[in-house]
Design a protein around this nucleic acid. Structure first.
Lengths: 348, 348
DNA sequence: CGGGAAACTGCAAACGTTTCCAGTCGAGAA
DNA sequence: TTCTCGACTGGAAACGTTTGCAGTTTCCCG
């Protein structure tokens, strides 16, 4: 039991291996009677096909790799959830590569795992692959979909971080703020992770365009967590003298950290300090956080669906067929500016 | 390129397939010269062994399944992180099954995925498997390790939730509180997920032992998130009349929700309201939250290590060898009572 | 210098499917 | 009744490794 092979099923059903295989995988050219017989025998024996054997024979793995830099942060776990759901529903396995903050792991993941022909495709989140790395992946005929990262040559789902950061900043400017601080993400966290820089650039561009200088001491960084931003924001807000009237945080979690820090100093949000975030974290509602809502979970789901479509299109034996790279689409995901009540005109 | 097989390598190196295989997998009985030759040829061709073929031949997959009910909540993502790191370092793949709140997915995961002989072993987090389900898994000779769930017959890592909940409650009682509320987890979230009930039982036991009645209206439930508990706590604290002096939340995230709600009502923590949590969430520090610290990440790492050891012990061809169930150890993970400053004597 | 063990090598048989291809069987048409 | 065609079926060849076994070399020692 448990280790019954298709051979055993065939014997029991009084059919050939070939017919049983066809019957169980729903192929045509099998009489109703045979199909019935095969199914019954398979059930009785508790037969479960070996995926290795079947993958070896067909070249399809029903397995997609997901590479993420972390799993703790809201954005990533949301994406994972979206990908995971879609994949499970489609009968695909999800192999998770949490490369984390250890850069050496990145190399090993790429070389030892991704290339081992065990995956039908790869979804890479916020990961910047070099062109040669992408080539390597495409060379083994595996489609890649990138989420929120620049993947030249691969299909991509993303939001326009630079523009949205501008929009957020302009919202504050529009309210009359000029003393605006920015909490950006740590760069050291992961060199491949360019997002913090992009959002920061958007912030700076908006400030510049409005003719306001960016005060270096008002640009602090944190690790994208509430607690990290809380600590940074405390420094930022410590002296009543050189205090900004608004803060644009590169993520909702960091925005919330800033709000908590503000409360510690007795600053009311938004009367004394406006705070705007970016992401659409569920917790934002509790704090009345104004933010730009991006559907991270939806992005994951769409990425998975795109990948699956590519796979289905490639159909038979992708390992042998022509490279499925075909059309590398670059899709911008819709976002929504969510004005709640953490932003207001600056104090008189 | 990319699709070179071991045959090609053998040809190029002027060796037999067998020798190349031995050379590349670091087996003994290969001359230094042959090994060198094989490696060189493999490099030149960019040869990467097919995992399917190799798994088919050896019976080992280098792939472990991880079943979690969710990936958003602190505990689970921490465990995933721990498991993931250990597995990656050991050269194993991690297949993630995020069963989520959809119960039908549970069945499909079990039947369609876990049993497909694609996994060397399974780590199940906070999942209660029926005995027959465990039998099924063990029947195909795959070891299982459970974290924080009752898995009769499988090795388990857990903390004593009932006792720790008692301890937390007793801490409040010891400070002189008698009007203690409890925020428990939603039961509907997942019928298989027994933890909320266990912690609640601990709470009730401690209250009972101290001779204090548990007021039903002071036991509210939430979905384990900050925002969920925030909403529940607002109801709890709404009327100044029947207000508790202390809250024990079944998780740190929920405790933080309670603290936020308290602040909304102008209640100072801990002077007006004591709050104690459970878990050791990183965010607890920001709120000075008194809690019971459990190393979720460590639990994941240890579980992975336990599984790997079992696999190594089973060594050759686990699919054929005797069931590796052998000794199903039940390991209690150490915890730490962390007194910060969210708890104090009740207001006069 | 001969003998034997030890080190190495290659052939071929697994591993468990899928699928091509050649065949068998039955039914309807002529 | 015979022929043709299509629907089924089964044998056997993939898929790409690992590994048992037997054969070949190498080396050491007497």
């Amino acid at each position: 039991m448990g280790l019954a092979g298709i051979k055993d099923v065939a014997d029991r059903a009084g059919l050939s291996i070939a017919t049983v295989s066809r019957a169980l995988s729903g192929k045509a050219n099998v009489s109703a009677k045979s199909r019935q017989l095969a199914k019954a025998a398979a059930d009785e024996l508790g037969f479960i096909p070996s995926y290795h054997a079947s993958s070896l024979a067909t070249g399809r793995n029903h397995n997609v790799g997901l590479v993420v830099p972390s799993i703790h942060r809201w954005y990533f776990s949301s994406v994972v959830e979206g990908v995971s759901g879609t994949l499970l529903d489609a009968g695909y396995d999800l192999t998770l590569y949490n490369v984390g903050d250890r850069p050496e792991r990145r190399r090993s993941v790429l070389n030892d795992f991704l290339l081992r022909k065990r995956l039908d495709g790869v979804i890479a989140v916020a990961l910047v692959l070099s062109e040669s790395e992408i080539k390597q992946l495409l060379a083994i005929h595996r489609p890649i979909v990138g989420i929120g990262g620049a993947l030249a040559g691969a299909s991509t789902i993303r939001i326009d971080d630079a523009r949205l950061a501008r929009t957020a900043t302009e919202h504050l400017l529009g309210l009359g703020h000029t003393r605006i601080a920015h909490i950006t993400g740590d760069a050291e966290l992961n060199q491949d992770f360019k997002l913090p820089g992009i959002r920061r650039t958007g912030f700076e561009a908006a400030m510049q365009a409005a003719g306001h200088a960016v005060r270096p001491e008002w640009v602090v960084s944190a690790d994208f967590t509430i607690q990290g931003a809380y600590a940074s924001a405390r420094n930022l807000l410590a002296s009543a003298a050189g205090r900004p009237t608004a803060v644009f945080a590169a993520s909702d979690e960091m925005a919330i950290g800033a709000i908590l820090a503000a409360r510690d100093f007795g600053l009311r949000v938004p009367q004394d300090l406006s705070v705007i975030g970016m992401d659409g974290h569920e917790l934002g509602e509790v704090f009345g956080l104004t933010t730009i809502n991006q559907d991270a979970r939806g992005q994951g789901a769409v990425a998975a669906r795109m990948l699956l479509e590519t796979l289905d299109a490639g159909a038979k034996r992708p390992a042998k067929g022509p490279s499925p790279s075909a059309a590398a689409t670059d899709r911008e995901f819709p976002t929504e500016f969510l004005v709640r009540n953490s932003t207001a005109v600056p104090p008189a």
